[in-house]
Amino acid sequence: RRYPSLTLNLLLTPIMLLLLFVYIFGDAMSGGAGRDAYIAYLVPGILLMTIGSTTIGTAVSVSTDMSEGIIARFRTMAIHRSSILFGHVVGSVIRTLLSLVLVGAVGVAMGFRSTDSTVLEWVAAFGLLALFTLAFTWIAVGMGLGSPNAEAASNSAMPLILLPLISSAFVPLDSMPGWFQPIAEYQPFTPAIETLRGLLLGTEIGNNGWIAVGWCLLLTVLGYRWSRAQFDGESA
Score class of each variant (00 low, 15 high):
Thr50Trp: 12
Asn149Ala: 10
Glu234Gly: 15
Leu18Asn: 04
Gln187His: 01
Asp116Ala: 15
Gly178Pro: 12
Asn9Lys: 10
Leu160Ser: 05
Val123His: 00
Cys216Ala: 14
Ser61Thr: 10
Thr133Met: 02
Cys216Thr: 04
Ala150Asp: 11
Ile84Lys: 10
Asp174Pro: 06
Met176Leu: 15
Tyr41Glu: 02
Ser147Trp: 04
Ser53Gln: 10
Ala169Phe: 01
Thr220Leu: 14
Thr13Phe: 15
Asn149Pro: 05
Gly206Arg: 04
Gly34Ile: 10
Ala33Lys: 14
Phe136His: 05
Ala157Trp: 03
Ala184Arg: 06
Met16Asn: 13
Asn207Arg: 15
Leu20Ala: 13
Glu234Ile: 13
Ala130Lys: 01
Phe189Val: 13
Pro188Gln: 08
Val22Arg: 00
Val106Met: 01
Thr54Gln: 15
Thr195Met: 05
Val43Trp: 02
Leu18Ala: 02
Leu47Thr: 08
Ile193Met: 02
Asp27Cys: 01
Ser147Ile: 08
Ile70Gln: 06
Ala72Glu: 15
Met110Ser: 03
Gly111Phe: 05
Leu163Val: 14
Gln230Asp: 13
Pro159Gln: 07
Leu196Cys: 06
Leu85Asn: 05
Leu199Glu: 01
Tyr38Thr: 01
Met29Tyr: 14
Leu219Ser: 06
Asn208Ser: 13
Ser156Tyr: 13
Arg1Asn: 14
Pro159Lys: 07
Gly32Ser: 11
Val90Cys: 03
Tyr3Asn: 15
Ser61Asn: 09
Ser147Glu: 06
Pro159Phe: 09
Val221Ala: 15
Ala109Gln: 01
Val62Trp: 09
Leu173Asn: 05
Leu11Trp: 11
Asn149Ser: 08
Thr13His: 07
Phe170His: 07
Trp179Ile: 13
Leu97Cys: 08
Arg225Val: 15
Ala236Asn: 15
Asp65Glu: 15
Ile183Arg: 03
Phe112Cys: 06
Asn208Gln: 09
Gly91Cys: 08
Pro172Asp: 00
Gly142Asp: 05
Leu145Asn: 03
Trp210Glu: 01
Gly233Cys: 08
Ile15Glu: 06
Thr13Trp: 13
Leu162Phe: 13
His80Thr: 13
Ser82Lys: 11
Phe126Cys: 13
Phe86Asp: 11
Leu165Ala: 09
Thr55Met: 12
Arg75Ile: 12
Ala33Arg: 12
Ile94Asp: 08
Phe112Trp: 00
Gln187Thr: 07
Ile79Arg: 07
Leu18Gly: 01
Glu121Asn: 02
Asn9Ala: 15
Pro172Val: 00
Asp65Ser: 11
Gly107Glu: 04
Ala135Gly: 06
Ala153Asp: 00
Leu8Cys: 14
Val221Ser: 11
Gln181Thr: 10
Val103Tyr: 03
Arg95Met: 13
Gly206Asp: 09
Ala105Phe: 12
Ala125Thr: 00
Ala212Lys: 03
Val22Leu: 10
Thr118Glu: 08
Ala152Tyr: 01
Ser67Glu: 15
Pro172Ile: 01
Phe132Pro: 00
Ala78Gly: 09
Trp226Cys: 08
